[in-house]
Amino acid sequence: MKSLNGFKPLAMILPGLLLAMFIIGYPVLDLANTSLQEVSRFGQLRGFTGFDNFAEVFSDPLFWGSLKRTAIWTVTVVLGTLVISLPIAIILNDDFYGRGVARVIIMLPWAISLTMTAVVWRWALNGRAGLLNATLMDMGIMTEPIEWLAEAQLAFTVEMMIGILVSIPFTTTIFLGGLSSLPQDSYEASMVDGATRWDQFRYITLPLMKPFINIAIVLNVIYVFNSLPIIWVMTEGGPANGTDILVTYLYKLAFRFGQLGKASAISLIMFGVLLLFTVIYVVLVMRDEKDTAAGEDE
């Protein structure tokens, strides 16, 4: 009976585990294998070449450019998202007229695929007829339409702002979950203790939200680092690779230029970076769970 009890839960998790291991595990091994071989455009492996593919990647200025932009993209979007989302979550957690409507509107970008969002923005930013130009000209902010996506620096900036916009709902959701778990009586006690609203934010909200902020940072870093559709749909990394980040560059190498060995090498490098972020995340989550468990023991 005892051995059966141990077996039953294993049997319950096994089918899903097998599928996940197969669909996620096989590609990782295949990429590792491919990255060490010479590969034809059509995917035939032509024998081991050691770390030639990696060497090629590291001597490629486009890789370094993409890497730099990936860093800028990730840091800007994540920081921008956090700075905007925390006050928004605090507002949405409070009771005010129209809160339900506000919540729905703030969460809307999450409901829509990044692809669609990017397609719509690509049209809205159209240099000749785009409605953003129309709006800004109607408001008298400018007299001539602007080609938003024709110049790399401007296009990249716009893309980062859209990146922030679409990351806000998820981040706000994490913060709302966090805020709703904060002990209400701590706020009452602090009112009696003489805290102003600012004191409450500084000494209670912020420290107690720290685990949620940490998790929001790590998750957003992972998502933003991996985000392809916005840049791909709006500029395809152009003009002249000026908005390429690692994922778009990787996609081009693999499916446009057929440089499969090099693409595999970049995939593996990214996988490594991602793994590092993930380990940070897992450690954060586990630590958090341990704290909660310790608290519940009482």
Binding site: P27, N226, A263
Partner: peptide, 25 residues
């Protein structure tokens, strides 16, 4: 198992897209 779940939750298809394509081939 829980750690494995957390890690796969973080895995994005884009990083593995070439490997996934080769798997489907």
């Amino acid at each position: 198992y829980r750690t494995f779940l957390l890690m796969t939750q973080m895995m994005s298809p884009i990083v593995l897209v070439l490997g996934l394509f080769r798997l489907m081939v």
